[in-house]
């Protein structure tokens, strides 16, 4: 809980900023392009906020009352990568091409080919198109090709029911909360990276500054206050949905009820809690 409270304080000043970011995206404006400047602004905002607003809701939060889950409708994703950007800013993820709590993959089937061309925003060609590792975009690299089929797949930690990462953690620094999120206690992690190895989805990374393992927490500091994860908040096409499965009227419950969903790498037995619609056999 200490970690959670610390996170809350850290993020308090950035909440307003994220709201602006979401608003800008919804308005269709490309508000965030100077990635190198914005994080500093965000940090400055955090630093200059006189005091964090009280969070009574957080204190009242009861993890036993919730069962969080995440849905991805790949048919809706347009690959705008606002989710990646919002996540990086909200969670202070290193602004480079090697550390992501969430990312987006692009699958492109060219005419006459059986296997897809896959890339993410971290691909050197896409970085070149963006001009910097701190901005995110997919280059129009297939413009001269005949494309049979193409789609985007947002990825993040699957917050598995049987997480291999939690199983292998030697200290218990990473654990599954009662509400289903898999989180890491950064004050207790020894940085052995065994969990990074164990995760079949490549969702974990080593935070080079904190020297501990890091990953998506479904924005635990936000969801415990009744907010949506940053990536869900900013998605302009609602390709990402999040909610409480205990609430039958929640978006996620409806998403699961209305769709035939699948999970990534079910053969691992990890039993992910991120459910996909509209992915293809080659997505792993």
């Amino acid at each position: 809980m200490d970690e959670k409270e610390k996170l809350e304080k850290q993020q308090a000043g950035r909440r307003a900023f994220l709201g602006c970011l979401g608003g800008a995206v919804a308005g269709g404006a490309v508000a965030v392009t100077a990635g190198s400047v914005l994080p500093k602004q965000a940090l400055a905002a955090a630093a200059t906020t006189p005091e964090s607003p009280p969070a009574p809701a957080a204190k009242a939060y009861d993890p036993t009352k919730h069962k969080w889950a995440f849905g991805v409708d790949a048919t809706k994703c347009i690959g705008c990568l606002r989710c990646v950007e919002a996540c990086k800013l909200e969670n202070e993820v290193a602004l480079d091409a090697h550390h992501f709590r969430t990312w987006v993959e692009r699958y492109v089937y060219l005419d006459g080919e059986d296997t897809p061309h896959v890339d993410s925003q971290a691909d050197p060609v896409n970085i070149a198109a963006a001009g910097t590792e701190r901005d995110y975009r997919f280059s129009n690299r297939y413009k001269d090709e005949k494309v049979d089929k193409a789609f985007f797949v947002p990825k993040l930690c699957n917050h598995c029911t049987h997480p291999a990462c939690v199983q292998v953690c030697p200290t218990g620094a990473t654990f599954k909360t009662e509400d289903g999120a898999v989180v890491i206690d950064h004050t207790y992690c020894i940085g052995c990276q065994y969990c990074v190895q164990a995760c079949p989805y490549g969702a974990r990374f080593f935070n080079p500054e904190k020297r501990v393992t890091d990953k998506c927490t479904w924005c635990y500091h936000r969801i415990t206050k009744g907010l949506m994860p940053a990536c869900v908040e900013v998605c302009p096409v609602s390709a990402r949905v999040f909610g409480d499965r205990n609430d039958k009227e929640s978006t996620i419950s409806k998403f699961l009820a209305d769709n035939r969903v699948e999970v990534l790498k079910p053969e691992t037995g990890n039993a992910p809690n991120v459910f996909y619609v509209g992915i293809d056999k080659d997505v792993s």
């Binding site: 939690v166 199983q167 292998v168 953690c169 030697p170 200290t171 218990g172 620094a173 207790y188 992690c189 020894i190 940085g191 052995c192 990276q193 065994y194 080593f206 904190k210 020297r211 501990v212 393992t213």
Partner: peptide, 17 residues
């Protein structure tokens, strides 16, 4: 990453690891 915490694994071992 944090060698000074190495004994966390000894004093509070996570038995499934």
């Amino acid at each position: 990453g944090h060698p000074e915490r190495a004994f966390n694994a000894v004093f509070t071992p996570h038995w499934t690891s």
